[in-house]
Design a protein around this nucleic acid. Structure first.
Lengths: 143, 143
DNA sequence: ACCTATTATTAGTCAAGACTAACTTTGCAA
DNA sequence: TTGCAAAGTTAGTCTTGACTAATAATAGGT
């Protein structure tokens, strides 16, 4: 047995980092569905070349990732055609968009400049728990 | 020429995501030097098994990562011995520790519970720019 | 001193996410 | 209508970060 003493918060910490690794795995997915939704709204469709330009990666990388997204049920696509969100993908995109907006508005409310708020939100949004997001919402509201 | 119109903020966005990917690449490095520093302070030395337990990964993974850290000049190690920070590693650990503390204190000041503040800080700390960190510091101070 | 448990290492595998280079398809303009 | 540039795809490679399984070293207890 190992329930004697030496790993009380060790296990907690391990859980934190495991969660963190899982969060990272879904970051790319979230960034993609979020951008695909934005492109559909603003351009009418999401083309691989636009994703590649926005993310700063090659079309080949976009292709790989879109295949994974398709495998995981977030998007549909046909060769040489544009990319569509499934219901699951659209739902995720909506969640992400909301979180993204709250984080951005929060940083702005805190006095961070617009460019930096946008850039930092992109990184922070994936690591904000429900509780922290509520705290952000609250701060924006009572400000 | 491509300086006519359609990619004004497309390029900005690409830069944001490129920076983000680079940030991610250094996250593991930062987490390791931070924890190694903590272990040296609290236990007197940093053993692979402790890192494995805290991160929730196998010893084999720690070994791989420590080799990379050694290759990149952050730590030194000898087979079957504990791990030491180089000056470069120690300097990075100091920076990370400060950032980590500020983020944690900020979340606490915002009313987030201790556990969640700790967990979220672990994810957020790697994505906070100097400007945002200042805003956090400021908030803590004037609170 | 030696055995055994803990710790560390090595070898081999896998998925994600990136790349280049070569190829194919599409669709628009002349 | 065809021909070429833009867009998309495929194949092959690399690094990181994870794993398991097998092996090796160390160190503590008797």
């Amino acid at each position: 047995m190992t329930d004697t003493a030496p790993l009380p918060d060790e296990a907690d910490q391990a859980r934190t980092f495991t969660r963190l690794r899982e969060a990272h795995a879904s970051e790319v997915t979230e960034d993609y569905v979020e951008l695909i939704a934005d492109l559909i709204d603003s351009e009418g469709e999401a083309r691989a070349v636009a994703l590649a330009n926005r993310f700063g990666v090659t079309p080949a990388t976009v292709n790989n990732t879109v295949k994974r997204l398709e495998r995981d049920g977030y998007v549909t696509s046909r060769p040489y055609r544009s990319i569509f969100l499934t219901d699951k993908g659209r739902a995720l995109a909506e969640d992400c968009r909301e979180r993204h907006q709250i984080v951005t508005q929060f940083l702005l409310a805190l006095g961070v400049s617009a460019d930096v708020a946008e850039a930092d939100a992109e990184g922070i949004e994936h690591h904000v728990s429900a509780e922290t997001l509520d705290a952000f919402r609250n701060f924006i509201a009572t400000k």
